[in-house]
Structure formats: structure tokens, C-alpha cells
Amino acid sequence: MKILIADDDPQLVRALRITLTAHGYEVVAAPDGAAAIALAAQTHPDVVLLDLGMPKLDGVQVIEALRGWTAAPILVVSGRTGSADKVEALDAGADDYVTKPFQIDELLARLRALGRRSAAASAEPVVRFGDVTVDLTSKSVERAGARVHLTPTEWRMLEFLARNPGSLVTRQTLLKEIWGSEQVADSGYLRLYMSQLRKKLEADPAHPAHLLTEQGMGYRLVV
């Protein structure tokens, strides 16, 4: 798997190149936002590791540019810890967010998850987690071989999460996908529908293993 690292910290890039290469990844690197876009177009990476605070073009501008032509997973690796920065990057099209400093084991785990998501997106449109099978083509859900009835809103929420397995999906994104406007106020609707999905699909709804809440940010489907 080819990884593009876009970061203006040469020491971090050097350390990541050594570590990722040792784990079998091919690494290319860009020192600024403009170079990252050009290198992505030239090399077509499988995953992009992206800092937000880069010269020439910042990370959010790079994400928006990349999303114009590629669906390659984007993992933001940034020192910005505020929830507003995270939400802005995720809503621009990033798939996940790790704050600096980070543990290399966590970074590798996130990369593996994004790799699985990329593989799932290119495979047949069936997503499985636990004893649940979600068929995105027939719009059907089975649990332990038995058909599960979902309301239209429950299905739209599950479908969007299933099309982005392993990725953090913000509340704003789900509100826009389900109700058609990111300006819709979340008055507990998302929590309600997520609770209903967990009751229908999780072995222990009170301690979910797959339909996870990212506090203050959104939801993630772990497959």
C-alpha cells in the first residue's frame, strides 16, 4: 500500500518513512500543500497522511482539492486538538483524525482500518460486522441469518456508516445525509436512532462493539 505523507516537519517525515517502510508500506512525501496535491495526482496513493498547518495551502484546502477527484482515505495527523479543527477537516472529506504526539501503534491501527475500508469500497457492496450482514445493493439487513426490519431513517443512518466503515462520521454529515441540510438542529434525533440501531444490531446495546459514539464528534462503524 502506498502512503503519501504531507507534512512540513522533516524529522517527523523521516521517522514515519522509516517506520512505515519497515511495516511494508511504500512512502512518498510532500513538504507543503501544493506539493501534496501535485504528488497525489502523480503517484495515486492508497492513503494520505496529512498535517493541517502546512505552507502554501493548508490541510483543509488540500483535502477539498483531493476530494475533487480521489476517494483515497485521508488520515489527518495534526497538533491541532480543538474539536472545531477536527470537525472542519472531517467535514471537508477527511476520513479520520489523530492528534500529535501520537503512539505509532495507534497510527498503524488507523492505517489498517483505512486500508480495510478502501478494500471494502472496491469489493462487492456487502458489509459485515459481528453476526450482522448489510447488503447495500438490496438495502437489506440480516442478523444471524434472520431479516432485520429497519425504519427508512434507521436504514439511511446505517447505510452511510456502512459505506464508510472504520471512518469517523460527524453529526453534521449525518444530519445532512439523512435530513438534507447540515443546518438541521440535532435535538437528540441521532442519539435516538443510534440507540434503536444498537438494540437491533448489537449483542450488548449498552456496551456496543461496532456502532460507536465518538464523544462530541459523531459516530463510527467498526467492522
Rank of each mutant, 00 (worst) to 15 (best):
G59S: 02
F102K: 07
G218N: 07
L75N: 08
D51Q: 03
G59T: 07
L4Q: 08
A6C: 07
S122H: 14
V87R: 13
D9Q: 12
L66Y: 04
D135C: 03
V148G: 07
L211W: 02
M194R: 11
W179Q: 09
F160S: 05
V28P: 00
F160L: 15
R220G: 00
V148Q: 11
G166Q: 07
Y189S: 14
M54P: 05
V141I: 08
D186E: 09
A146M: 11
G216Q: 05
A123H: 09
R117P: 00
K176Y: 06
L158C: 11
L136V: 02
A123C: 06
A119L: 14
R191H: 11
T70Y: 01
A206N: 12
A209S: 13
A121M: 14
A206Y: 03
P165G: 10
A94L: 05
V77P: 05
D105P: 02
W155R: 09
G82C: 01
R117F: 12
L175R: 14
V62W: 03
A185S: 13
S78I: 02
T137H: 13
L114S: 09
I63L: 06
M157G: 06
D204G: 00
T153S: 09
S181G: 06
A109V: 09
G53D: 14
L12Q: 15
S181V: 00
H210C: 04
Q42R: 14
L50M: 02
G82S: 14
M217K: 11
P152V: 04
A71H: 12
F102V: 03
L114V: 06
T153G: 01
G180V: 11
G188R: 06
G166N: 10
S118V: 00
L175C: 10
T170W: 05
P208T: 04
V169W: 03
D46P: 01
D105L: 12
R143Q: 11
I63N: 08
I63W: 05
A120Y: 06
L190T: 04
V127H: 05
G145I: 02
Q103C: 08
P101L: 08
D186N: 15
G68Q: 13
I74P: 09
G180W: 10
A6L: 02
F102T: 05
D58S: 05
A22Q: 12
S195H: 14
D95F: 00
D186Q: 05
N164V: 00
M157I: 15
R163F: 01
T153V: 15
P125W: 07
D95P: 01
A22C: 01
S78H: 07
S83I: 14
Q183I: 03
A40H: 15
L90Y: 05
A123M: 06
L190S: 09
A92F: 08
G115A: 09
T137F: 08
E177Q: 15
V62E: 06
K100W: 04
K139P: 01
V132Q: 10
L190P: 11
W69Y: 14
L49P: 13
Q196C: 03
D85I: 00
L52I: 13
F160N: 04
G24Q: 04
V127K: 01
G115I: 02
V28W: 03
E214G: 01
